[in-house]
């Protein structure tokens, strides 16, 4: 069988990208940016606050960390719930004890189910980033447009009922459709965390911002996928911080999953990591980082 002429045609071979979502920009050509207090590094810690329904949904795809056995998967339902009951509080305590700001990418379903958790996150000043309805609320290019928009609208409405208007959206597994940036702008969002192509904020053509939540530095990637020890995780994050601080004006993005990093045998290494990063890191939520970035680059 032959491939046909379309396979050897390159209609989008041109300067910049083969898409119009955002403009091309190389980091080393950008003007320098200074973080507050002369800190060499901004640290954007994003704690995941997830609710996994016992019955998983596979359309468009099953979220990472979701149920794995035949129904009923009490093993993973409760092991994930451990993150929301115990692990996330260890993380909140670690940040509170050091006076450091984080942010929480939260399924609105968990905010509804755990008002004490929501209250603590608010009281301790951590920014809330919308993270779909629950872990069945996945999106990709195969999802019908009206279904994606309904999911975003429902998430916004349920947050509004809790008195919250998140400025940012973090998609489950960072998975978006080509329509997602426009849907997010239409529903009042100012930024997303999902495109992992940079260590600095950048702007989509439609005005939406992106602050990359580096998946390679996530606890899931290093501890679960690569099966490194927590000591190796901490060492890798310190190496990353050294690199980014030396370059200056960069964001160290830490994705923290309570049922992974918040376990008793891991949390002490994470606390020591925070102690190591605190003197040179400007710990801030994405909106604060973005506001400072916009002011510096205006």
């Amino acid at each position: 069988m032959t491939l046909g002429p379309a396979y050897l045609a390159y209609p989008r071979r041109r300067h910049g990208y083969d898409h119009d979502l955002y403009p091309w920009s190389a980091a080393h050509l950008r003007p320098p940016v200074q973080w507050p207090e002369g800190r060499p590094l901004a640290v954007m810690a994003v704690i995941k606050a997830e609710f996994f329904p016992l019955t998983p949904v596979d359309t468009p795809f099953r979220a990472p960390g979701h149920m794995q056995t035949a129904f009923p998967d009490y093993r993973h339902f409760t092991a994930r719930d451990y993150g929301s009951r115990v692990g996330i509080w260890r993380l909140l305590d670690a940040f509170r004890a050091r006076g450091l700001a984080a942010s929480v990418a939260m399924n609105v379903a968990l905010a509804e189910r755990a008002p004490a958790l929501l209250a603590a996150i608010r009281a301790e000043g951590h920014e809330i980033v919308a993270h779909s309805t629950d872990m069945n609320g996945t999106v990709d290019g195969s999802l019908p447009p009206e279904a994606e928009e309904a999911l975003v609208a429902e998430t916004v409405a349920r947050w509004a009922a809790l008195g919250e208007r998140p400025q940012g959206w973090h998609a489950i597994a960072r998975s978006q459709s080509f329509r997602t940036p426009d849907i997010l702008v239409k529903h009042g969002f100012g930024f997303t965390l999902d495109w992992v192509n940079d260590d600095q904020p950048w702007r989509f053509a439609n005005g939406l911002w992106n602050l990359a939540l580096n998946h390679e530095l996530s606890d899931r990637q290093i501890l679960n996928v690569c099966q490194a020890s927590v000591d190796s995780y901490a060492e890798q994050i310190v190496d990353a911080a050294d690199c980014l601080a030396a370059e200056g004006g960069r964001v160290l993005a830490l994705e923290l999953t309570p049922y992974i990093i918040g376990l008793p045998y891991r949390i002490a290494a994470f606390e020591a990591l925070l102690d190591h990063l605190a003197p040179r890191g400007w710990f801030a939520g994405p909106s604060a980082i973005l506001a400072h970035w916009r002011q510096q680059t205006a």
């Binding site: 795809f61 290019g141 960072r174 459709s177 940079d198």
Partner: peptide, 18 residues
């Protein structure tokens, strides 16, 4: 993933930007 594979594409994009 169905296109756009956001992580797949943007991870490779990191090479050229950074």
């Amino acid at each position: 993933r169905p296109h756009p594979d956001v992580v797949g594409f943007s991870h490779r994009d990191y090479a050229n930007r950074v």
